[in-house]
Design a binder for these strands. Structure first.
Lengths: 341, 341
DNA sequence: CTGAAAGCGCTTACAG
DNA sequence: CTGAAAGCGCTTACAG
């Protein structure tokens, strides 16, 4: 069975304190002593008991990632980048899905706090995150938000350059001669608002009047990509296509693209001949459609990576009692031109 | 700050043992005493310290899921089902990606053991899992395998009905009049072998000779779906299409479909007119292609769910000292007919 | 440079 | 039905 520090100490002929010191490098010991300890460790195949250590140090080495919608591959990629970054610092990731329900998100945070995670990364379902003020009142731990801006709770954030990316997309459309450009998003939240702002900015700069009727948002009742095929965005697209004279469509995210593209397919509208199409966020299957879709690519694992760094920095700050102001980092997007515009 | 069981005991005027008993329901106490304890708990907003409890009980309440390829949405769905099931039993999931590298998988298992997970679910990168015998020698914990059969280590498994599903797919093709049917898989492993066997069985039953040259497997050098577009399966498909007279193609998994379908698109081959196409495993984007793809759907969250149940049963078995034989469960697949055949 | 000892917050035989 | 106490395996002031 597993051996403990006591047996190591006994075999090495030293105290448990000394064993702890050499194992953690937390105090200088004589080289000769260190050798004896390490020999004993090897002989017994000793491994530190993390349960005991965590308990003693009052940390779990666990970071929770509360994701608004885990079926969205964007967040899976964020999780991947986050996990990799955290592993470098000896932390593990616990992933948990909120299924776009605020109540589930709150429950998730509560559970995670109850299992004493050392930090939290949150992709919030909605902007209102004031509940965190209460929940974290007694156990202040670092929190970083990704993808969406919270309201009612100040903390670190990492987001894509939503406005710039959208601006670039629409500028590209305008350069191709389009003036009747519509924007569809799966739902109006802070992120989609930023993208809509980039859309407006590009139009304004080109002297094209902004038509409020060309800007459409869905509801967010459903979370599954399957359901989005004939969801609110599908209907908006249908309306835009049949009752308005648009020549180009800018989709605010992949979820919206699922609905918009399904509509385009069903109406048998030729892209880019009949309509130009561009979408924010890239997915690997955008090359398997006919035509392949031009997209503003985000870098989700970079977002996760940066969020992980922020959390780890905060954690060492906490230990050292330093307190830095919250920061917001933006990860640059990039336009990938394919065949849809 | 956080209060401890001692303060609760003090406030309630009882011993810490009693508090522990009522909190855990582990011994009968007088209703009156229980009330006093619960009052104190409420007054202090006391929450049990899981770090201390885990340490004391020698468990972490953590289950590790070591995934051969986390970028594959199939496994993300398995993880989702697993997580949901484990949560019901008070366990949390730690997800970790092996990127289809055996050495990373072994490293992951080692790390997870070092953080003392209570159980392990593994989607192995390759069949050889004999390393587990050594790693688990000193800390025997329950292990369940998903999706792929291991060799060299006996444990519980949950797999899809690969042979039956493939058989059904090929029978469907035969019923449509096809006789020159090729099979492509991303890589030859136990799962793909089972699917190939279903393919052969359907042919044999229909009296169609099995042409060994019609069965192709890729290598597994790359993990990313993007790279599979022009990977080994792409080349096999190109060869089958240009040098052989096949009329139908059965793809063994989504990764293979990425390569095969890309090839079909690039050669501008009309599906199903020029060639019929069916694939094992379903993905939501199969409705966004032209045409929509007929698929043998798997139920990954059910796989995860069952694996979770198995682990939890083993865990209670361990505690009670019972030892049951290992079991293999199969989750049924279902054919979803769309427009590609 | 090293050790004896306290203590982290629980759970659980054991005694009454 | 309840409590006093041991002990899980570490880390860390403190003393020498």
């Amino acid at each position: 069975m597993k051996s403990s520090i006591k047996e190591v100490a006994h075999l090495a002929g030293v105290s448990v304190a000394t064993v702890s010191y050499v194992l953690n490098g937390t105090k200088r010991v004589r080289p000769e002593t260190e050798r004896r300890v390490m020999d004993a460790v090897r002989k017994l195949d000793y491994q530190i008991n993390p349960l005991a250590r965590n308990f003693r140090k009052g940390e779990s080495k666990l970071i929770g990632f509360v994701v608004c919608d885990l079926s969205n591959s964007f967040f899976q990629d964020v999780a991947h980048g986050l996990e990799t970054q955290l592993a470098k610092h000896g932390y593990r990731l616990i992933l948990i899905d909120s299924k776009e329900e605020k109540s589930i998100e709150m429950e998730n945070v509560r559970n995670l706090l109850a299992s004493s995670v050392d930090g939290l990364v949150i992709a919030p379902t909605t902007e209102d995150c004031s509940y965190l003020k209460f929940m974290l009142a007694n156990h202040p731990i670092p929190v970083a938000f990704v993808d969406r801006k919270p309201i009612g709770f100040e903390s670190d954030m990492v987001l894509s350059t939503n406005e710039d990316g959208a601006y670039e997309a629409v500028k590209h459309l305008i350069a191709k001669g389009h003036r009747e450009i519509a924007f569809v998003g799966s739902r109006l939240d802070s992120t989609m608002a930023e993208r809509a702002e980039g859309y407006r900015k590009a139009l304004r700069e080109a002297g094209i009047p902004v038509n409020a009727n060309y800007i459409r948002f869905g509801d967010s009742l459903s979370v599954s990509q399957r359901d989005h095929r004939h969801g609110a965005v599908y209907k908006h697209t249908l309306d835009l296509l049949t009752k308005h004279d648009i020549t180009a469509l800018f989709s605010g995210n992949t979820l919206a693209t699922v609905g918009a593209f399904t509509c385009l397919m069903e109406l048998n509208i030729k892209i880019p001949q009949d309509i130009a199409f561009i979408t924010f966020d890239d997915s690997f299957w955008f090359t398997m459609t006919t035509p392949a879709l031009t997209a503003i690519s985000q870098y989700p694992d970079q977002i996760g990576d940066v969020a992980g760094k922020m959390i780890c920095e905060r954690l060492t700050d906490f230990r050292n009692g330093v307190d830095r102001p919250h920061q917001l980092q933006r990860i640059a997007t990039q336009m990938i031109i394919r065949s849809s515009c």
